[in-house]
Design a protein around this nucleic acid. Structure first.
Length: 472
RNA sequence: GCCCCCAUCGUCCAGCGGCCUAGGACGCCUCCCUUUCAAGGAGGUAACACGGGUUCGAAUCCCGUUGGGGGUGCCA
């Protein structure tokens, strides 16, 4: 029997949570949930310079939004300095490290003279320098042999030790570097599976050597997830790409859509069903089945998944989710409620809800220029159609202000205006254009009869007259 | 430069030696349905990077080439 799985997500709060980290966090979470293991959180906040407390809040908030609930209290790496210092002392005592007083300028200069190869050249390796201010401790990497591991997504990976430079473990000021804190904490927290991005592959042999030097056991498994890339096939970057998780939330994406889509990058269920409940993904997800090649973060497909998830929502749930995106408060909410299913089926994001119902809320619908041109300027028999529609709708009494009678009225108006098809019936595809623009300002929107019903007799007729008036 | 990784439609996946005339999804295009837009239905477009092996048989295994990516800090 193997020990229970313990995984961790270890973000450094130097930026907002982005979709790439979300991808790694999700993989960790899925493995924990499917094995009954634990998903731990460790905030790697040792870089006081770049750290910002509010970014920690953002990371936690986004994980919660995504539904990736962690187990236990988040661990703050900055509070574990003593442990790291003790570990470093152990390395010093064991002779696993040596001290070095080279400045990076000196190292670079020597490398340049030696033919431009980067990395530390081992200058101080045998100088026997004592510890002292400004002197960094470097790990004495083996000159021979290889260091490797079995990667759940990539298979066997190994590096020649000779290619590993004597990397810094303690800075000149005595503080431990990331790699030491990271490897030590993983071991100390009992992490069994280290699941992270591909960008950590190259530092893994050093991580392993460090654990060996510390006498700590290695994790039972590693999994290096494929990087998420942009259309140029470059690693997603904060600077040029749309990567902020919070931005996606603000743009009306559902967390379940984001999580489902993220799971699909690098992995796919063998039955081909891509959009499905998270519980099913938990059951089917296997690190062994994850692709090692980089995956393009495709917003179009994300939008598709989002639309599917929105349509799958029970109506009351849809209304609740859309609520924060409504800009006219109660009025918007009431308007949306009256056309809920019609709107729900038509939006790809929650941010698209408000524009679709705004005509019901504002006094004057904003007229979309392209729509006006298409349906009014270039429309046929527009004046006749509007006149006839006004006449037929005026004839409806309040009790008859319902979709069915309204449809009949507009159909009759179409016939009056001469907008008929080959069989002499109303040509609604043409006829509804001017009416739609008159009441909503746009050529697209929820079904017309329902829209008119909700808009109400008075406002509908007023808008039709105003539009008719503009024609002169 | 060096090290490591990767390589199936435009994109994301399926395929794990014969079931492949290479399948699904997104996108795009056409048609149907239809009051617009969606949704739905029916089609279409489009890929195993290349060259050598291994094998009776290779998209699947091996080697090389080419191409792409990542790493290369006293950042995390």
């Amino acid at each position: 029997m193997t020990s229970p799985v313990r995984v961790r997500f270890a973000p450094s709060p130097t930026g907002f949570l982005h979709v790439g980290s979300g991808h790694s966090a999700l993989a960790n979470w899925l493995v924990a949930r499917q094995t009954g293991g634990e998903f731990l959180l460790r905030i790697e906040d040792t870089d006081a310079e770049r750290n910002r407390p509010e970014l920690v809040d953002n990371v936690l908030e986004m994980l919660q939004w995504l539904g990736l609930q962690w187990d236990g209290e988040p661990v703050r790496q900055s509070e574990r300095g003593q442990l790291h210092a003790d570990a470093a002392a152990k390395l010093v005592a064991a002779g696993a490290v040596y001290f070095c007083d080279c400045t990076s300028e000196e190292v670079q200069a020597r490398n340049k003279a030696a033919g431009g190869k980067p990395g530390y050249d081992g200058f101080c390796r045998d100088r026997g320098l004592e510890p002292g201010p400004g002197r960094a401790a470097r790990f004495r990497t083996p000159r021979e042999g290889r260091t490797g591991w079995t990667d759940l997504v990539r298979g066997e990976i190994s590096f020649a030790n000779a290619d590993l430079e004597d990397f810094v473990v303690l800075r000149g000021d005595g503080s431990p570097v990331f790699l030491l804190a990271n490897a030590f904490d993983d071991a100390d927290m009992g992490i069994t599976h280290v699941i992270r991005g591909e960008d950590h592959v190259n530092s893994t042999p050093k991580y392993l050597l460090l654990l060996d030097g510390l006498g700590l056991s290695r994790p039972t498994a590693f999994a290096h997830m494929p990087l998420l890339v942009n259309e140029q096939r470059k690693k997603l970057s904060k600077r040029r790409d749309d990567v902020s998780m919070a931005d996606y939330r603000e743009r009306g994406y559902l967390p379940e859509a984001m999580v489902n889509y993220l799971a699909l990058l690098g992995w796919g269920p063998s039955d081909g069903v891509e959009v499905r409940p998270i519980a099913e993904i938990i059951d089917r997800y296997r690190l062994e089945d994850v692709n090692a090649s980089p995956a393009f973060f495709d917003q179009k497909k994300l939008s598709f998944v989002n639309a599917e998830k929105i349509r799958a929502l029970p109506v009351p749930e849809f209304l609740a989710r859309a609520r924060p995106f409504l800009t006219h408060g109660e009025a918007s909410a009431a308007a949306l409620e009256s056309l809920a299913t019609e709107v729900q089926e038509r939006v790809r994001t929650l941010a698209e809800v408000e524009p679709m119902i705004e005509f019901l809320v504002v006094d004057e619908p904003e007229v979309n220029e392209a729509s006006w041109t298409k349906a009014i300027t270039k429309g046929k028999a527009v004046a006749e159609m509007l006149d006839a529609t006004i006449a037929w709708l005026e004839a409806l009494d309040d009790d008859a202000w319902q979709p069915e009678p309204i449809q009949r009225a507009v159909s009759a108006a179409a016939i009056d205006a001469g907008l008929v098809n080959a069989e002499g019936g109303p040509q609604l595809s043409k006829a509804q254009g001017p009416v739609r623009v008159a009441i909503s300002g746009r050529t697209v929107g929820p079904p017309l009869w329902e829209s008119i019903t909700v808009l109400g007799r008075e406002r509908t007729l007023a808008r039709l007259r105003v539009t008719r008036g503009r024609l002169g």
